[in-house]
Design a protein around this nucleic acid. Structure first.
Length: 198
DNA sequence: CGCTGATGTCATACG
DNA sequence: GACGTATGACATCAG
């Protein structure tokens, strides 16, 4: 198929192509050079079309062109080869453009994610500072409460053995350690004795 | 001189 | 099956 036709095409040209193309199997190069080469080959084979006609004409017109001029095997092979390469050249250009656009999009996405990461890091620091502040306030409140409250014998509570709890209704209770708030509330309710409600 | 980006070409897959 | 398109891989060239 294409590879066979190309190699035979290039192969047959090895003798006189060295002046403008290297004779490696995978012939490549700049557009003008290859078009120039193809134009020359078209002239050599007496093909009555230009490279531009071959590559740019729509299928219909291209086919009618082929119908009008009876081309031999060699001419037909070259013409189809030129057309295929021309089409593929444009396809490669589009493909690369698309790839570049995708790359640009991904880079933008990366920048956006970096920005968001920065925001989240700042938020985290802010919350950390806020938590520290609340912690200090709570500690202070603890000290104030334990300093201001006395048991029914007038003695201060020892913060080593008692903990300050806030119930759902917002009431503060000083309860012995190792007793959870619900238990403590049940006990005090049972005894109808709200122990040191603050 | 070797490196790199741009470009063309080929092979291949797919529609 | 022929044809066009998309894409990876390779080659070549220019800067």
């Amino acid at each position: 198929m294409a590879s066979a036709s190309s190699s035979s095409y290039f192969g047959s040209e090895n003798g006189d192509s060295s002046s403008f193309m290297l004779n490696t199997q995978n012939e490549a190069g700049k557009e003008k050079r290859s078009i120039c080469r193809d134009e020359l080959r078209c002239k050599e084979l007496e093909i009555p079309f230009t490279v531009s006609m071959i590559t740019n004409y729509p299928v219909e017109e291209f086919n009618s062109l082929l119908r009008q001029h009876r081309l031999n095997e060699e001419q037909l092979t070259l013409v189809k080869d030129i057309r295929r390469r021309g089409k593929n050249k444009v396809a490669a250009q589009n493909c690369r453009k698309k790839k570049m656009n995708e790359l640009t999009g991904l880079e933008a996405e990366i920048n956006d994610l970096k920005r968001k990461r920065g925001e989240l890091i700042r938020d985290k620091d802010e919350l950390k500072r806020s938590k520290l502040h609340l912690r200090k306030q709570l500690d202070q409140t603890y000290i104030e409460v334990f300093n201001s409250v006395r048991d029914n014998l007038g003695r201060p509570y020892d913060p080593r053995y008692y903990t300050l709890h806030i119930s759902d209704d917002g009431d503060a209770h000083i309860i012995p350690n190792k007793v959870i708030l619900s238990q403590w509330l049940a006990i005090t309710t049972l005894l109808n004795y709200h122990h040191h409600t603050v």
